[in-house]
Amino acid sequence: MIRFESLNKVWPDGTHAIRDVSLEVPRGQFCVILGPSGAGKSTLLRAVNGLMQPSSGRVVIDGTEFNARTQSVLRRRVAMVHQHFNLTNRMSVAANVLAGLLPMVSTARAMSGWFRPEHREKACELLAQVGLSPAHLKRRAGELSGGQQQRVGIARAFMLDPEVVLADEPVASLDPKISSDILRLIRDAARERNATVLCSLHQVELAREFGDRIVGMRDGQIVFDGSPEAFTDECVESLYHGAVWDDTTPEEAAGSSLALGTTNVSLA
């Protein structure tokens, strides 16, 4: 279970990226976060593994608060799938997946690349699960297609059997067919381990298909929180409306978004 408690983030440049967000995601839920660009989705996800230090408020994972002291333990339990895959391009697929184990292995073992047989087997199993073939093992990660790279990224994320999986726009640069394949892989692997998934997306259709729950964000606030069924086309319209350029002044835009915020929260 992940609990955000009145989280705030103000970047040094004054951007208020997260405004007093409180949210509770139960264990095993696939929670999709939607919202226009700059809404603060990435910022929120990155609070869970400490890639972003919140200005105030806290994040609690299964009863343990995330802070500097608990960070090293909690990070092992939280995996992340990245929009740009974030693989080491010039390293082999196998080494990239094994890198998912790094917090658990000694430095000597890591540097020599001499992983335990059971770990090597696990890497192979996971690669098979995400649909890659043994021929890919020795290939350089950077040579693979985007879809294949994301599969490697997923295999790496599940090496430590995480309790929480953060997926920040995992399919943003992939075609529709592969996008749903990838999301299915994440969902199935997470279900198998009863892991909680926090996944930000830009595709409403995919959000409805895969999410157990949809959270809509706008201007750093949660403006919708409910089931995929409750997330109607009107909700989509109001979530994204105003984010595109129109004739309203910034002041007006801010006012209308606040109004939208209240309607949507009541909608949920």
Binding site: S72, R75, M80, H82, N86, A99, L102, P103, L160
Partner: peptide, 9 residues
């Protein structure tokens, strides 16, 4: 960043 996120050291 990917490796930092899992606390690789």
């Amino acid at each position: 960043e990917a490796l930092e996120a899992i606390g690789a050291g």
